[in-house]
Amino acid sequence: MASGRIEVVAYAGYREDECPRAFVVGEVQVDIVKLLDLWTEENAFTGRRRRCFRVKGSDWRTYVLCHDETGDEWALA
């Protein structure tokens, strides 16, 4: 699968898009079976923040999904 913008189904708790549950690339949906790691990155020059999730997909591959909080966009890293 190529990296870039993707569609994500996320659990919205007290924080919007708190944790991804599945993502879609093209017409392929991958359900997330396990959250492996979570971290926040901030660009020192622009101040943009993104939350990144390292997850195990239902296809047993490991993915890194990042949510740009400023632009409200998800990307597959």
Rank of each mutant, 00 (worst) to 15 (best):
N43L: 10
D59I: 06
V55K: 00
A22P: 01
V9P: 00
D59C: 03
E7C: 05
G4R: 02
T62F: 05
G4F: 06
E41D: 13
V55I: 15
L38Q: 15
E69C: 03
G47V: 09
R50W: 09
E7W: 11
E27H: 13
E18C: 04
A2E: 07
E73F: 12
R5A: 05
E7Y: 07
V8K: 01
Y14D: 10
T46I: 06
V64R: 01
D17W: 05
R48L: 04
V25D: 00
C52I: 11
S3N: 05
E69P: 02
V8D: 02
R54H: 03
E16G: 12
W60F: 15
R61G: 04
R15E: 10
C66G: 04
L36I: 15
Q29V: 15
A75Y: 05
V33A: 03
A77K: 11
D68Y: 01
R54G: 02
A10K: 04
E16L: 11
E18L: 04
G13R: 02
W74C: 01
E27L: 12
R49L: 08
A12S: 15
L38E: 15
A77D: 08
V30T: 10
A77R: 13
L36S: 05
D59E: 03
P20W: 01
A12M: 14
L38I: 14
M1V: 09
V64E: 03
E73W: 13
R48K: 14
A22K: 03
V24H: 04
T40I: 15
V55L: 02
E69A: 11
C19T: 09
F53K: 00
G13W: 08
F45H: 04
R61M: 06
V55Q: 00
V33D: 08
F53M: 02
E69D: 10
R15G: 02
L65R: 00
H67G: 02
N43Q: 09
W60R: 09
E41V: 15
P20N: 02
D31T: 12
E42W: 09
E42D: 11
I6R: 00
D68I: 01
R51P: 02
R54T: 13
E7N: 11
